[in-house]
Design a protein around this nucleic acid. Structure first.
Lengths: 137, 137
DNA sequence: CTAAAAATAATAACCATTACTGTTTTTAAT
DNA sequence: ATTAAAAACAGTAATGGTTATTATTTTTAG
């Protein structure tokens, strides 16, 4: 893997934490400030390269764009069902009975990254007690 | 919601369990046997209608097509990373410390449906001890 | 039987992502 | 420093799952 200025800028942005768990698109618009000609494909390719070699982590969400995380320590996430913001959840707070699951299902469990759903503090305040907008896809 | 023969056939197929957690596309090709002119849009619309009114459940997966489940009882799923097959996991086998998560993150938790990752029995046998094919997206 | 409401088939549009292509940058060896 | 091969790039086309649109057909209530 050769050095590239674009990849460096992408990693810099992720580590700067200006946005906490950005999607490829958010990385794109931000890195564009430094590299106005950068293409979205380049952002995707580099985010995937960095995720593949373990420099960053890819957070795959159901029905939403992948997010990228500079924190590669094992942990889970919770996503706001209203605004899509995601936040870390310590891995100690979710307990998976792997042995029983393997025994009952026959699957081998790869106690992967878990995504919980909920409402972030801002959306909670904004939407309650009014029924929140149903933006399921 | 008016009666429709197509919707009835879709629900029949789901309940027949010929395929366990079918995607919209699998429902489509199967219901097509009874209704050769049915359109994929009709399948999607009806699956979503049935999921919205609680008759069936929609299982959203990261980086894979949604699946539909005739079983609406709360439970989790495990997906085979090799072949995409999904299996039920009893909700007792995953313990989420909702109180602590809410305290620490500020989110309200909607202890949603969780999807674990692993290898189904068939793929385990087929791929081990050979390194399994890496089909991440 | 009829008219309004709902559902349909067919197709176009959408969005996130990947694939392709010809050009530029990086690297390692001369 | 020069150069040639490898890697990365920008730009764009293509893909896959899903939703939206529209004109036609089916369902239902009166």
């Amino acid at each position: 893997m050769n050095y590239s200025r674009q990849r460096e800028a992408i990693l810099d942005f992720l580590r700067s934490m200006k946005v906490k768990h950005p999607s490829a698109d958010v990385v794109y618009v931000n890195v564009k400030k430094r590299f106005p000609n950068i293409s979205l494909g380049t952002v995707y390719r580099n985010l995937n390269l960095l995720a593949d070699n373990g420099t960053i982590a890819k957070v795959k969400l159901p029905s939403d764009a992948d997010r990228f995380d500079h924190n590669t320590e094992p942990h889970f996430h919770i996503i706001c069902e209203n605004c899509g913001q995601i936040e870390d959840v310590g891995s100690a707070l979710v307990n998976i009975d792997v042995v029983s699951i393997e025994k009952l299902s026959g699957f081998s469990v790869n106690a992967g990254r878990i995504v919980l759903k909920g409402l972030c503090p801002a959306c909670r305040k904004k939407l309650s007690p009014i029924k929140r907008k149903d933006n399921k896809k």
